[in-house]
Design a protein around this nucleic acid. Sequence first.
DNA 1: ACCTGAACACCGTTCAAGT
DNA 2: ACCTGAACACCGTTCAAGT
Lengths: 198, 198
Amino acid sequence: MSLSREQVLGHALAILDQYGFADLSMRRLATSLGVQPGALYWHFANKQTLLTAVAEAILSPRPPVCVPTGSAGTGSAPTAWEPAVRTWACGLREALLSHRDGAEVVASVLAVRPATLDPAGEIAAVLMAHAMAAAQARAAGMALLHFVIGHTVDEQGNAAMAEFGVAQAVDTEAQERFAAGLDLFVAGLGVRLSGGGG
Amino acid sequence: MSLSREQVLGHALAILDQYGFADLSMRRLATSLGVQPGALYWHFANKQTLLTAVAEAILSPRPPVCVPTGSAGTGSAPTAWEPAVRTWACGLREALLSHRDGAEVVASVLAVRPATLDPAGEIAAVLMAHAMAAAQARAAGMALLHFVIGHTVDEQGNAAMAEFGVAQAVDTEAQERFAAGLDLFVAGLGVRLSGGGG
DNA sequence: ACCTGAACACCGTTCAAGT
DNA sequence: ACCTGAACACCGTTCAAGT
């Protein structure tokens, strides 16, 4: 039986989890599939395309954000923005943490702006539904995205060092830093959204 | 005359500015210096060390942040935290923008936690001087750092695409997104610092 | 002290040719 | 349709040997 896209993707995730992003090469992936390097280029145009699929696989287990459906004039919206923002940020971080170097992979993929992947747009939609201007919501969404990804790259980098017996108090410190950073965003959003509503 | 560290560093910055981060290889750098690849390893232990020096060169032109010197009990501090935060963030972004792919280089170097480079610590010191708890100040400093670097990586990625004639309205949009994101941080910090002042 | 020469163990990608 | 074989143009790093 011939190779499938899903098989290649599965082995890519396996190499990522076992050996890390630096060891996820096309040649190593081919070896793990018992195939010549060139064979991979039948299923994926290039490494970038493969990595985009890997990033999508990392992010796709997240639940969709709950965008309020109420119209703008009916007073306070049916779903609160604050838990939505917190759930989105925590869910994103957990998805990134669920694979070794997940944050680094997703960061490298988002850097090339794939049309299929726009996590910032998800949370920007929520903010717009709460009467925030489109440009402001987009800016807030991207700032939140940069924070979550930057933080998690950091966190996973620390985890990689912890294998060499540095410490694991680093883990709880990272978690607290994430919570504090998220609180800062929520506080800032609160000034705009709770204060002058609409 | 023999090669000096400064010469190597200077040529590395020149390659970065002309050809970008992806083309900054040890072999290309050696060729540009008229020397064999192995010669570089007399002056720098490895590529990581060289890149750290490049990142330091990118960040060092920034002015030091102005940490207030007043003691904690004398009421409001002599220097305001808000302009300090804004100046630090804008100065960081400008330093990153001053070299092609500067944000990407600095991001890759900060990922390995060099002891000599801690931009988040600079602004955390300011917040602590304004009676913010150490852990909170550290978290805020890192969140700000992740935002500025993430944003600028994005901005420079767009600039690279703009060479292929996409648009340059992207430039002003990026600038406005940066301003809006920074405003969000300042608003969040204001809830903590202006409200219950130390 | 500082560099060359030459190797080692890798990369991503292409493409004629096979089946 | 799908893969092999083999090449092309690269990487970072090491290290004996030269000067």
